[in-house]
Design a protein around this nucleic acid. Structure first.
Lengths: 225, 225
DNA sequence: CCATCAGGTAACTGTTTAGTTACAGCTTTG
DNA sequence: CAAAGCTGTAACTAAACAGTTACCTGATGG
């Protein structure tokens, strides 16, 4: 509507910001970009995320983003990798093998649920990545070994439970983990449509607590001898 | 790189396609747009979906899309509503009340799993809509009443099971449905990242069948007296 | 049998977007 | 302390995008 701000001339006017005396800190800038990108990708998906928005949220600009991370897709992969490292690192510190088998499984179920509850951006990122059939995660080399530890530890707990006569013989560690993760993931990631169609606010504390108890109950019921 | 195809002149050159003798069919065009949009939104999310791509997939053009559906967001809501109508309509035809309580619950679990398996685009749409916190679904007036039927029917089955002494007393119909849906949704919608990180192809027929049996087993175990 | 209108095409437009570039202040080191 | 390289800014550009417009063509009904 208003006059043309863009014309053919290649003239560039430089202006220096006179007051800007901010301390330099590459590590801080890098971390700020990563955190801002995590939020932006989690909120909008990879197609909806805006590079300008990430730069602005990080309090920097696109030049730095491209300097540190290459391009939008590489930045996205970095965000995704860090998200996985986050949950698997916290999970390791549980040491579910140090308890009775039932307590160990219950502890893992509680931890998973509460981690999902505290980190909705992790759930969103998983959703986005699966929408694209793990197109970026597949290219990651860092993550393959991160997950064998979990399955191994879980297999040990199930084996001890079986020998103690409290768990069924054919409980598969992957299936047990998928059961726990399913119940937490679906409830939280789909809470918005579910609350809408069923007319009950799933985010209400009473409902959240009931579902937490439900997860532990269902998980144990599914493998109890 | 090549010469400017666009200049300031407002001249428009019209050309008529000489061979195009296609039969007119507004209903077919409308349906084609809806189907194409379902695929495009399911594959790319709302931010990644391209209006041009939808028009091309439907074998028509943007003019018709805007003519029939208003804009991109209204088209998206239509797609979402149709997806819900699809599953709820099929579900109604099950008549889970016509069987024993255990069979009824098992039947519902099997139906839900198989419907998710056959309609991956439904899962993708749910994921997209939840990423945006049900922003569009909330505006829908058509869907509120579509879901009370399911919960009512399920409540009846649980009550009969309780009276027959096969189900526990405090089984909540919504929780039972959420349990069934959780186990199916998570396994299928997250199969790509899960297969990648755990190094096991979840889409392999043997694994799919094992999980189908697992869902029925877990659901019944969680409510059995 | 022609006036009207719904169905249809494709070029067009203003804006947004990912990615680049010209430039400049810090910071380090020979 | 000066050259070189790293951190940072903001304007720039080509392409892509959602949405519009000019125009055309079959069908329909008075």
């Amino acid at each position: 509507m208003e006059g043309a701000g863009r014309n053919g001339q290649k003239k560039r006017v430089r202006r220096q910001s006179p007051e800007r005396v901010l301390q330099r800190d590459p590590e801080r800038t890098r971390a700020a970009i990563l955190e801002a990108a995590t939020k932006e990708f989690a909120e909008n998906g990879i197609g909806g995320a805006r590079v300008d928005a990430i730069a602005e949220r990080a309090g920097t600009n696109k030049r730095m983003l491209y300097h540190y991370f290459g391009d939008k897709e590489q930045l996205y992969l970095r965000v995704l990798e860090e998200a996985y490292v986050g949950i698997r690192t916290a999970e390791r510190e549980l040491h579910i093998g140090d308890r009775t088998p039932e307590e160990g499984i219950g502890e893992l179920a509680l931890f998973t649920w509460r981690y999902f509850l505290k980190h909705p951006e992790f759930l969103s990122l998983l959703g986005t990545e699966n929408l694209h059939r793990a197109r970026w995660l597949r290219q990651s080399v860092r993550l393959k070994e991160l997950h064998s530890h979990l399955i191994g530890e879980l297999a040990d707990v199930l084996e001890r439970g079986k020998k103690a006569g409290v768990f069924i013989a054919n409980a598969d560690p992957l299936n047990v983990y998928l059961t726990i993760a399913s119940l937490g993931y679906f409830y939280l990631s789909n809470q918005y449509t579910l609350s809408t169609i069923f007319g009950r606010d799933l985010a209400e504390p009473g409902n959240l607590n009931a579902w937490e108890r439900h997860i532990v109950h269902v998980t144990l019921a599914s493998i109890s001898a």
